Amino acid sequence: MFLPVEEQAAKRSRGKLDSIIFDLDGTLWNSVDTVLLAWNSILKKQEKQQLSREDLEATMGLQMNEISRKLFPALSESERGQLVKECSEVENVFLAKQGGRLYENVEQVLEKLSQRYRLYIVSNCQEGYIEAFYKYHDLEKYFGDFENPGRTGLSKGGNINLVIERNNLSSPVYVGDTEGDLKAAKFAGIPFVYASFGFGQVNEYDEAIDSFEDLLKIFR
């Protein structure tokens, strides 16, 4: 039986819950359709086999080097690296112009949460991806900081710790949808809220939500 997530945060840091750190894909939005268009535009130019929606969904939560090995196993490491670099650059352009699909009531919930807590994003994405999310959906105003391995080269857990240290957070929690998100929260020593509507399956968590709006029930 888990303690309520606010009590978990207080127990670990001896302070009142002060902040919420979010994963992006599968937690705040689903960008697969736009990303698929971007990547397939590059693959078509290079006369390579097109990806399916299922191909991309199977890589959610992974870092770019892991994604490249999973999607393009027949290529050499250098070829994979160059291809993913090109796809990622075009992906950022597509996302800034077309956006992704926000989960229901995301902005309304963020607005309410931001009145009580400091909000952040840590995602396993390339540099420019979170900025594209901000640009199209105009949500930057709700977040105090963000981080990703494209800028730091760190693991997700390492980037969570970086955001915690950089912003002097005393009692944060992490909200995500994959096993990797759970492991990252454990690495950082903070409670984990599982977004069951996302891409992953997680059996261990401090709290679970079936919709983004459920966060308002947890963080009252």
Results as ranks from 00 to 15, higher is better:
S170T: 12
K186C: 08
V5K: 01
C87E: 04
F212M: 05
L43A: 01
E131P: 02
E77I: 14
Y117C: 04
S76M: 07
R116S: 14
A38H: 01
I190E: 04
V122Q: 01
Q46W: 11
S170N: 11
L182E: 06
W39N: 00
E127S: 13
A74H: 05
A208R: 15
F192Q: 02
I190W: 02
K97R: 14
Q8A: 08
R53K: 15
P73H: 07
E179D: 12
F212E: 03
N148K: 09
D210P: 06
E79T: 03
K183R: 15
Y129M: 02
L110S: 11
L51G: 00
N30Q: 01
V90H: 03
L154N: 08
G61N: 05
S171W: 08
G61F: 02
G198S: 10
E165L: 11
E57P: 03
A10M: 10
D206L: 07
Y103N: 08
S76H: 07
N30G: 02
I21E: 04
E204H: 15
W29V: 05
M64A: 12
A185M: 05
V93K: 13
E165N: 11
N203W: 07
A9I: 05
Q63M: 15
V175W: 05
E89I: 03
P172G: 11
F187Q: 14
G100W: 01
D206E: 14
N167D: 11
Q115G: 13
F94R: 00
E79I: 01
S196V: 06
V122H: 02
S114P: 10
G144V: 12
G61S: 06
L62A: 12
G15D: 10
S170G: 08
Q82E: 12
A58R: 13
E54Y: 03
L28I: 02
F146I: 06
L119Q: 08
G15H: 15
G61P: 11
Q108N: 15
V84M: 07
T178D: 09
N167M: 09
R151H: 14
L56M: 06
K141R: 15
G26N: 02
L110K: 08
R14G: 14
Y142K: 05
L119T: 07
K11C: 10
E89P: 01
A74L: 09
G99N: 08
K11G: 05
N148Y: 14
R101D: 14
E91H: 06
P4Y: 02
I42A: 00
Y174K: 03
F133P: 01
T59V: 11
Y134N: 05
S155Y: 15
V173G: 04
